[in-house]
Computed example of a mutant assay.
Amino acid sequence: MNFVRFKHLFILSGMALLALAGIVFDRPAYTKGVSYHGTNNIVLNSGEMIHSEERLIIGDTLSLAVIEKSDANLNYASLSAKAVSFGRRTLELEIQQAQSSRSNPLSGLSEVPDVFFGRQYGLATGAALHLEFLPTQVENTICYYVQELDYVRCLYR
């Protein structure tokens, strides 16, 4: 057997094995049952500061809780959604229940596109949400993109 004659076959076979190993050993972007937490400070056009904290737990049911504080105003919102399909980098959800402690969002939130509960879609029971998890360099961090809301958030354990 002449090695020169089959060297391209060996190279292509090696590349195929590496690609297959990458697919098989790719760890999911999120861990079920783990609580992820994040904080965010938002400065409105008026100069007012809104501080938000959120907690996300992914399982057969996704649970998201958000607290938004602005001066003396406080809003607590929660969302629970049933996981319809799991993927290594995607998650498809159906909203089961969404609640907010305020009937109207905090004043000024409508000018900020980065607020989840200021959007009507986020409170629609039965609506579908598609989460795509983005690659991160930090092991205890997840970043996800919600297609329907054009919303990106990074949280940590």
Results as ranks from 00 to 15, higher is better:
M1Q: 03
M1N: 10
N2G: 13
F3R: 06
R5S: 11
F6E: 14
K7W: 14
K7C: 05
H8N: 13
H8L: 09
L9R: 11
L9Y: 09
I11T: 03
I11L: 13
I11W: 05
L12F: 14
L12S: 13
S13E: 05
S13Q: 05
A16P: 07
A16S: 08
L17I: 11
A19D: 08
A19F: 13
A19T: 10
L20G: 02
A21I: 06
G22C: 01
G22F: 00
G22K: 11
F25H: 12
D26K: 06
P28C: 02
T31M: 07
T31D: 14
T31G: 10
K32R: 14
V34A: 09
V34T: 04
S35T: 10
Y36G: 05
Y36R: 06
Y36F: 03
N40C: 09
N40Q: 12
N41R: 13
I42T: 14
L44N: 07
L44Q: 04
L44H: 12
S46H: 03
S46K: 05
M49W: 04
M49F: 03
I50N: 00
S52Y: 01
S52P: 06
E53T: 13
E53M: 09
E54Y: 04
R55W: 08
R55D: 05
L56P: 08
I58N: 04
V66D: 02
V66S: 01
V66T: 11
I67V: 08
E68H: 02
E68F: 01
K69P: 00
K69M: 06
S70C: 00
S70G: 06
A72K: 10
N73I: 02
L74R: 08
N75F: 02
N75D: 05
Y76W: 09
S78C: 01
S78M: 11
S78K: 01
S78P: 05
S78R: 04
L79P: 04
L79C: 05
S80T: 08
S80Q: 06
A81V: 03
A83K: 02
F86Y: 13
R89V: 02
R89K: 14
L91E: 05
E92K: 15
L93F: 03
E94N: 10
Q97V: 08
A98S: 15
A98W: 03
Q99N: 15
Q99H: 14
S100L: 01
R102S: 09
N104M: 15
P105K: 03
P105G: 02
L106I: 07
S107E: 15
S107K: 10
G108F: 03
G108S: 07
L109G: 06
E111Q: 12
E111V: 12
D114F: 08
V115K: 01
F116H: 07
F116E: 13
F117N: 13
F117S: 11
G118Y: 00
G118H: 09
R119M: 07
R119W: 00
Q120V: 04
G122I: 01
A124P: 04
A128D: 10
H130W: 03
H130G: 01
E132D: 11
L134G: 07
L134I: 15
L134N: 07
Q137A: 10
Q137G: 15
Q137D: 10
V138K: 09
V138W: 11
E139D: 14
E139P: 03
I142E: 14
I142L: 01
C143R: 00
Y145E: 07
V146L: 06
E148K: 00
E148C: 02
L149C: 10
L149K: 00
V152T: 09
V152A: 05
V152M: 07
C154E: 08
L155Y: 06
Y156Q: 12
Y156I: 03
R157G: 12
